[in-house]
Simulated scan of single mutants.
Amino acid sequence: MGIGTLRTEAGVDIPGLEIAHQTWGEFTGDNAILVEHALTGDADAATWWSEVIGPGKALDTDHWFIICTNVLGGCSGSTGPSSPHPDGRPWGSRFPAISIRDQVHAEKMFLDHLGIEKLHAVIGGSLGGARTLEWAALYPEMVGAACVIAVSARASGWQIGIQTAQIQSIVGDPFWQNGDYYATGKRPDAGLAAARKLAHLTYRGELEIDERFGATAQQGENPLGPFRRDDQRFAVNSYLEYQGRKLVDRFDAGSYVALTEALNRHDIGRGRGGLNKALAAIEVPTMVVGVGTDILYPYHQQEHLSRNLGNLLGMAKINSPVGHDAFLTEARQMEHILRNFLNLTN
């Protein structure tokens, strides 16, 4: 859907903005729920969160009107680096750096075009959690309640460091070409795969990775030979290479850089008097959800949110060895948490 021109927080115009979306259920005027996807997600929330979205499930599409957009900067229909610029060529290096606030402003423009003036709730995890938190800060008059999952009030130094290392893996690929690789027939696939391998280790728990792979060799290979060889791997290395290939097949490196940089810029307190003052000013009833084994967004960061939010609806902890991704994989726990959240909002 074309929604016009967005001016970014840093002062750059993005004309001809497109926001892709999917919806489930019937809109009755007061039953809209916006679901926010994570970094490499898309608008098809009923697929990547199939255990909680659908008839009779926590996000019951017989009752709720579920909306999910593809985030600004993404590569699944919304405007991003791979999208056509108004001049017909891909945006590439001309696509500006964007913030979480820019992404939320774009979604607000999109909802205005749909004629939706009120959201019963906004729900999201990770990058989607950062957008959910910004929704509560930017548009409290529109948001009935928020469920903020597996994210912090701002990017920590550790998060910025690990995320920038991923960006550098991509921009250091010889096929990156300053982001203008789209018409060359060559993509920075090796850089994107390397970034994904590094990121995946932060998405999964140390316990889960060790229980699954430990120090075992990949079948038919010997990583303990007299010389190190790329084709003689530990099992975990084979697994990470597989994860890298999977992402390369479905995602754009330019979008990965743009969205990761947006996470680096996440700071709910910027321009609002600091973190605690900004959180205290949020009057939208907010549930905070964390994962006990999360390496990327440790649980103490959700505890900080819960202590300082102006209107805490509740807090929940997902118990799982999986780590950060548990909000996507622990279906039974998320089903219970989301049902409780919606019960508290009614």
Rank of each mutant, 00 (worst) to 15 (best):
N311C: 07
P81R: 00
S93L: 07
D62T: 04
G157Q: 14
V257N: 10
I318W: 07
W24E: 03
P226N: 08
G214F: 13
P223G: 01
I268E: 08
W158P: 00
G244P: 10
G179P: 03
G11V: 05
H85G: 04
V35D: 01
A253H: 09
A215C: 15
H200N: 08
G273Y: 06
D294M: 11
S255L: 00
V291H: 01
V143N: 09
G124H: 07
D13A: 13
C75G: 09
I33W: 04
T164W: 04
A280N: 12
G244F: 10
G274Y: 01
E211A: 14
P84W: 01
T260M: 08
T286Y: 02
L240K: 00
L342I: 14
W24D: 08
Y242L: 13
S83H: 05
S83V: 09
Y182S: 12
M287V: 07
E117P: 03
A235Q: 12
H63L: 12
A190C: 10
P285Q: 06
P55N: 15
S306F: 05
H304T: 04
G77D: 09
L6Y: 02
T216N: 06
A45F: 01
G80K: 06
N340A: 07
E18F: 10
L259A: 03
A145Q: 07
T184K: 14
L198G: 07
P285N: 07
C147P: 06
E36S: 13
V12E: 13
P223W: 00
Q177P: 00
L328F: 01
Q243T: 12
D249V: 07
S50P: 02
K118N: 14
Y256S: 02
Q333E: 10
P226H: 15
W48N: 04
I100N: 04
M315E: 14
A331M: 12
S255H: 01
T202D: 05
P90D: 00
G115R: 13
G92F: 03
I160W: 05
K118D: 03
T28N: 15
G73S: 15
